[in-house]
Nucleic acid binder design. Structure first.
Lengths: 211, 211
DNA sequence: ACCTGAACACCGTTCAAGT
DNA sequence: ACCTGAACACCGTTCAAGT
């Protein structure tokens, strides 16, 4: 069957220029993840949707794990750009740091499977696009700097604080996604993130000890 | 082949009394998880190690997912008892709440695959052992009460605080397990948990606003 | 009531062969 | 250089048949 015919279900074959199969596979993988979750993300299904044989991906990725890594890296990129924008757009009365945390949680709730894949997949920076490693490091640096500016504290303390903030929002997102938060009618993740970052923000900015 | 002969590699067949295959499968599953991780935890491998045919588990579990749920529930039980003990044993100068958080993190670092399975698997309390549901609820209640006692705050505020504390330690454990914390030589999870709970404890107990 | 063995559909991976 | 098709080992699941 030719690659330009529509598929059996009538949906169009994803358009990709010849020689861009690698990119098409990453995109198709994300598509499957969003539509049907991690369990449906098989190498053969990705190949099927991309309109190539099930062996074709091996010309672009060493194995399934390598494709998953590439998808995870793309997700990190997406989340980073989203958070950076949120931080810039945060109106002056609004705290940029809180906007950052809320954007983090929003991404998680909008892309649950991708988010889980991103953070449950060991990323060895050696196999990552250097531009991405740099972008991630820069994002973290600006996060650290933001904390130090607001608190006027030592770098060591800012480090502790950043770890605590990141852990809180990350843990909250994970617990929420995994359905572990089931006391009452569970509020949307965004609201919980607002609550938690509010609490932490209030605690941190009130004048007191900072070792 | 008889079930009482040693296996090919010479290791003994796990002892379980006839009629206790269900329990043997759960135990064997945890064994595989600890030794070789989630990817190695297949239904067929569990059956193999337990010395039964690959179809036998279906007489005790509806499908693989049901076995995973049972294993996850066992893990929750293990973690709960461990944390309860840690809280009791905490010496008076030591804060019981902090001991709780540290025990949580310690369990995660000692049983990484089991921990991940526990929290990445939606638990529907309907299919869980009622004793376990009750035990979990009781553990959370005592956690909540501990917060309210120490802070002398409203129940609503204690709820916010408990969510924040839980999220922090959970997120920290997850990020650590997934190798996302790679600035310097990463400290043991226990040390990071001490650092984060120290910070949060100090912030919470200093006299200030509690809405 | 509990377990087995064969069978089916599916998956990841490899490789000789095609263009 | 890139892709295909057949092949292999493995898995989850089902089911008739055994005790």
């Amino acid at each position: 069957m030719s690659r330009t015919e529509p598929r059996a279900d009538g949906s169009p074959v994803p358009a990709y220029h010849h020689g861009d199969l690698r990119e098409a596979l990453v995109r198709t993988g994300i598509e499957i993840l969003e539509e049907r979750g991690l369990a449906a993300l098989t190498l053969r299904e990705v190949a099927r949707r991309a309109g190539v044989s099930h062996a074709a991906p091996y010309h672009h990725f060493a194995d399934k794990d390598a494709l998953l890594s590439a998808i995870a890296a793309r997700g990190v990129w997406m989340q980073n750009t989203r958070m950076a924008r949120a931080m810039e757009e945060a109106p002056p009365p609004h705290d940029g740091l809180q906007a950052y945390g809320i954007a983090y949680a929003e991404f998680a709730s909008e892309h649950p499977s991708l988010f889980r894949l991103m953070y449950s997949h060991e990323r060895d920076s050696s196999s990552m696009d250097p531009r991405m490693v740099e972008a991630s490091a820069a994002a973290f640096q600006s996060f650290l700097r933001g904390i130090q500016d607001r608190l006027g504290c030592s770098e060591a303390h800012a480090h502790s604080v950043s770890l605590t903030l990141w852990s809180s929002v990350h843990g909250l997102a994970m617990l929420w996604l995994d359905g572990q938060l089931r006391w009452e009618g569970v509020p949307p993740l965004r609201d919980l993130a607002t609550e938690v970052t509010n609490l932490l923000g209030a605690l941190l900015t009130s004048p007191q000890k900072r070792s």
